[in-house]
């Protein structure tokens, strides 16, 4: 083994890498929030929608779950280019991740909705709430509590998936690392540090979600 590790350039660029880590976190959180909203709508569409609505929901969900995330990113990146629609790298990653998250979350939400007794809905309606009110004030809060843990997992997946941004030219943590690594050819050192940063981000998410659960579910 006659390889000399050079960590100095990595530590010099460490502040930039950490900053890129925040970009990763930002795109993951954003895609998660939009994905949750889409996921709830998709789940309701799949359960109660008319035939065309249900068809849209089912095909979105199944496409998101049965094709690689990278394929979905490429689709938003190159595929839409065929129609003259060119998204910025940030939007490509955001759309791809949101599409994927919404598909997986919709199935979680569907399980959650089915676990809520039907009487909850009927009671809310007979108290004079409209259907929308009943969903927003009665059903969805309970569902969110039920699917809290799958949602945490999905959040972790979103962070890990955002690393694919590297392949569509988005400068989040992985993209930034590749940029620096190709400047110095210290590929191993740079990616080793990036792996550590990802590990810290994931542990941070899991830890804070546990704290949040502690605060939210102490009834």
């Amino acid at each position: 083994m006659d390889y000399n590790f050079h960590w100095r350039p990595v530590f010099r660029d460490l502040p930039d890498l950490v900053e890129a880590g925040f970009v990763t976190l930002q795109v993951a959180v954003l895609s998660m929030l939009i994905g949750m909203a889409c996921g709830i709508v998709l789940a309701i569409m799949r359960m109660h929608g008319s035939a065309p609505l249900r068809w849209v929901a089912v095909s979105w969900i199944e496409l998101a779950r049965n094709t690689p995330a990278l394929f979905q990113l490429f689709f938003f990146g190159f595929g839409l280019g065929a129609f003259g629609l060119h998204l910025s790298p940030f939007l490509i990653v955001l759309c791809g991740l949101t599409f994927n998250n919404a598909g997986y979350l919709a199935e979680n939400f569907r399980g959650g909705f089915q676990a809520i007794p039907e009487t909850q809905m009927r009671a809310a309606r007979s108290l004079g709430m409209t259907a929308a009110q009943a969903y927003i004030r009665i059903i969805i809060p309970q569902v969110l509590r039920l699917v809290y843990h799958p949602m945490t997992n999905q959040m972790v997946w979103a962070v890990l998936m955002s690393s694919l941004g590297m392949l569509v030219g988005f400068r989040e943590l992985s993209g930034e690392t590749q940029f620096f690594a190709s400047r110095t050819f210290r590929i191993f050192e740079y990616f080793a540090v990036t792996a550590v940063i990802y590990y810290v981000i994931v542990k941070f998410i899991l830890g804070s979600s546990r704290l949040l659960a502690f605060r939210l579910f102490r009834y």
Binding site: L160, L164, L167, S174, F191, Y199
Partner: peptide
């Protein structure tokens, strides 16, 4: 747990560049 907390793409790049180091 490390393998589940680090993106697969990073693992691939790391291993691909680490293998030559150990010969």
């Amino acid at each position: 747990d490390v393998f589940r907390s680090v993106p697969l793409i990073i693992q691939l790049v790391l291993f691909y560049n680490f293998a030559p180091i150990i010969g």
